[in-house]
């Protein structure tokens, strides 16, 4: 079950949030429940400490009139629920967009000043969190987990084009459909993360399902996103088999 949490000190706003959440869970028949709605950040931390396997989505007010702020609370939640979905709900005056998104790798940032869109944004967040939860639970989609900064990110295998080894030892560059991510790893271990991955060059591991074209003469492989990776003659033979 996906556990939903609310931490908001304004009773009126908290009641609204609860209603939006409960309505959406009921209408969409989600395997989710609003387990805790409170004005006290420590209620959430205490709950998590006694339920360490919680998979949660957390709607947090930033200014909590407590000795910890929403950001501090989010960091502590992360310590326990490392892949939890954190959403900040805040007023416009507190807006520092990037900080909220990246300090604790929040999922979203909802501004209270536009009441009309709050309900929609909350439902969007619940929708995404539920999708992530289902993917993880069924294991239907294969996910490559990578630690980036203080966050563990899950990337679907189908999104991965290839891995490229970096210029310094243990640095690998992951090319996805629309991004590049550098992280700490060794290239030779990456050929083993799934059967669709293939060591096509001493510096490259390619996802065979995302190949668009193989140039045997030029010894390059073109991917479906238009990027290229190198291939050795011997590995091309292996690929064409």
């Amino acid at each position: 079950m996906l556990s939903v949490f609310v931490c908001e000190d304004d009773l009126n706003q908290r009641t609204h949030l609860e209603k939006y959440i409960n309505d959406y869970i009921m209408i969409e028949e989600l395997d989710a429940k609003l387990v805790l709605s409170t004005d006290n950040p420590y209620d959430i931390l205490n709950y998590l400490k006694s339920n360490v396997h919680t998979r949660g989505i957390y709607f947090l007010d930033v200014d909590l009139k407590s000795d910890i702020t929403g950001i501090g609370l989010a960091s502590e939640i992360r310590e326990i629920d490392t892949i939890g979905n954190i959403v900040f709900v805040t007023t416009h005056s507190e807006l520092t967009y990037l900080t909220f998104l990246y300090k604790v790798e929040a999922m979203d940032y909802i501004i209270k000043d536009t009441p009309g869109s709050i309900c929609q944004r909350i439902q969007d967040c619940l929708h995404v969190a539920n999708k992530r939860y289902l993917n993880d639970r069924t294991g239907e989609k294969k996910i490559f987990k990578v630690k980036i900064g203080n966050q563990i990110r899950g990337i679907e295998h189908s999104e991965i084009m290839f891995f490229e080894s970096g210029l310094v030892p243990h640095k690998v560059i992951l090319h996805t459909f629309n991004s590049q991510i550098e992280f700490y790893h060794t290239i030779h271990e990456l050929a083993n993360i799934g059967e669709e991955f293939y060591r096509c060059h001493k510096s490259f591991v390619v996802n065979k399902t995302n190949i668009k074209n193989i140039d045997r003469v030029g010894k390059v492989i073109e991917m479906i996103n238009g990027e290229f990776c190198l291939a050795s003659s011997r590995s091309i033979k292996g690929l064409l088999k």
Binding site: I148, G166, L167, V168, P169, K171, Q180, E182, F183
Partner: peptide
């Protein structure tokens, strides 16, 4: 890419 402790992500 030459700095061992510096990592770039582009999206």
């Amino acid at each position: 890419r030459l700095c061992p402790n510096v990592f770039l992500e582009t999206i």
